[in-house]
Each structure stands twice: as structure tokens, then as C-alpha cells.
Nucleic acid binder design. Structure first.
Lengths: 146, 146
DNA sequence: TTCATAAAGGATAATTTTATCCTTTATGAA
DNA sequence: TTCATAAAGGATAAAATTATCCTTTATGAA
């Protein structure tokens, strides 16, 4: 449903956001390490995030990734949309190409409840809110060990 | 989240269940056609479903797939479990290997709501109920065209 | 017992997703 | 202007998922 790339992307974005107040720029290596994601793959994802203005990047020495004030206000769904697109929030639970109230699959109503709950979660949560939670120490974006 | 194999499997099971009253056995070809799934791939999935006693098969002429009374009472989650396993209902929305109330990701609570809604949908719906809906003509397991 | 039939099973191929590596480009301090 | 640095971009590789094909096995009617 949500791809690994997208989950890495959300974790990376939250990490970058969580460091905004420090006014520093973060490089790929540090980001990948702090969110337990493969470095080269994370680099590709950060590229997409920058192109979609989820985060901002600067090349060269003293460069790196950072997040701007307006970007903190973006809902997490913008990250999902940038990486996976919006199909997760529309697709049929049983894989039908068309599935709606007029041509529903037999699980349509029940599946829609779950799908809409997911939509709500991603739509009504901002990147800044998640970063704040992490900074307050109540939640994590990195695995314990492995 | 839910694999294509699993969605094909659910549609196929519902189709077989919807024909139970006719007392006929269905072959792979017909099942695949009626649920718009690739035939050879569907054959593999039906194998798994038979092994997990979701449906029943009989080899040879006059053989095919059918569903028994007790199997109609099984919740759809049994199909998901047979094909994809239960991880969908446990996994972290941001991909952390461990994510729980004690070591939560910053989206834990909101994601859990959606995930539990999905669990509820699959757990509290039986194969027989879905087949009935299809038989009543109110819902579909086949695409319109393509 | 033979034979046609239909699922089971094994081997493999195609596609998609995940992941890596290396070269190029931009940046800014010295 | 030079040079070290860090992201961007291109080309592949590895892994997982989806999909196909062919042989084997079981079944039951004739």
C-alpha cells in the first residue's frame, strides 16, 4: 500500500524537520543513518522530495538538506503523493479497476472506512507536528537496533 | 499492503462461494475469467487456498473447486492470512521494525486507527456474506471491461 | 483397465520495487 | 580561480512479486 520508499521518505522528512531549529543542513549520510534507511536509496528519495518542494536542498560544501517554515506546515499526505501518488486513497480493496458506490466490490463500504481513516491520518497531520513529537522525545523514527 | 495475489485470491474465493448453491465444481479457467485474474497465476493461488482449507479442490474429470458449508463461515481475514500473512495488521505506518505504544513512531496512534479499521473489516466479514452480496446483484468481483 | 480431464507441482520468465555505484554539476570558501 | 564538498543524475544490479508454461499426479466414467 504505502511503499518502502515512501516510508523512508516520511521518516527522512521528519528527521530533517526535527533539526530545523538548529539551523543546520543535513547530508544524505547522516539522514540515512538517523532513520535507518539505505543511503543510496535515500539519496534518490531525497531528490524526489526536493523536486516536490517537500524539503529543500543546496549543493556544494556547506550544502545539504533542510526544511523551510512553510514546508513544516505541509500535511504528510504531500509526501505520499510525491512518492507513491494518491492511488492508495482511491484503490479498491479487492483490486477492481473501477470500484465505487455505483459499481462496488462486495467489501467496498467496509474497506472505504479503513481507507478514509488512512486518508484522514495523512491529511490532517503536518510534518511539523510529527517533528515536534519526535523532539519532545515521545516517539521515534529510528529502529531500536537490529 | 494487500498483495495482488491476495486480492485475486479473495475475488476467486467469493466467486467459488457464490456458486455453492448450484452444487457445481468450477475449473481454473472459468474462475480466472470470472474474476479478471491471470489464469496461471490464479491456479497457483487456488492451490494455496486449497492447502489452507479456504476452498476445496478435487482432481480429475468432474473435478474442480468448490466451497463447503463450514468454509462459507470463515472470515475473509483467513484468506489474507493464507496468502499474505498477518503482518499487514501489525506493521508500522512508517516502516519501523518495532512500533508499539512503548516505542511508537510519530504516526502510531493515527495509523493504528486505520489499520484496526482494516482488521475489523476483514475479521468481521465472512466469505458467505460477500458471496451473498454478489448473488443479490448489489456488488461485483469482475471489472466492467478494460 | 484405459483414457480423457483437471488440479498439483516444478522450473522459469517478466515486471516492479528496492538498492548501489559512479560521474556530473553546483556551490562557496580560501 | 581553484578546489574540496555535497547533491543530482545516469546506468545497473539485486530482490521481490507477478506471471507463464510444461510435466506429473489423481480421478472417475466408459
Amino acid at each position: 500500500m504505502i511503499s518502502k520508499a515512501c516510508k523512508y521518505g516520511i521518516r527522512a522528512t521528519i528527521f530533517v524537520a526535527s533539526k530545523q531549529e538548529e539551523g543546520i543542513k543535513l547530508n544524505i549520510k547522516d539522514i540515512a543513518r538517523e532513520v535507518d534507511a539505505p543511503e543510496a536509496f535515500t539519496a534518490k528519495i531525497l531528490q524526489v522530495l526536493n523536486k516536490n518542494r517537500i524539503i529543500t536542498s543546496l549543493k556544494g560544501p556547506y550544502g545539504g538538506f533542510y526544511i523551510e517554515d512553510y514546508q513544516l506546515e505541509q500535511p504528510v499526505i504531500n509526501i505520499v503523493n510525491a512518492i507513491d501518488g494518491m492511488s492508495v486513497f482511491q484503490e479498491c480493496g479487492l483490486g477492481l479497476k473501477q470500484c465505487s458506490a455505483t459499481h462496488p466490490c462486495p467489501m467496498h463500504d467496509q474497506y472505504k472506512i479503513a481507507r478514509d481513516a488512512l486518508l484522514d491520518a495523512f491529511q490532517n497531520t503536518t510534518i511539523g507536528q510529527l517533528a515536534e513529537q519526535v523532539n519532545e522525545g515521545g516517539s521515534y523514527i529510528k529502529n531500536l537496533h537490529y
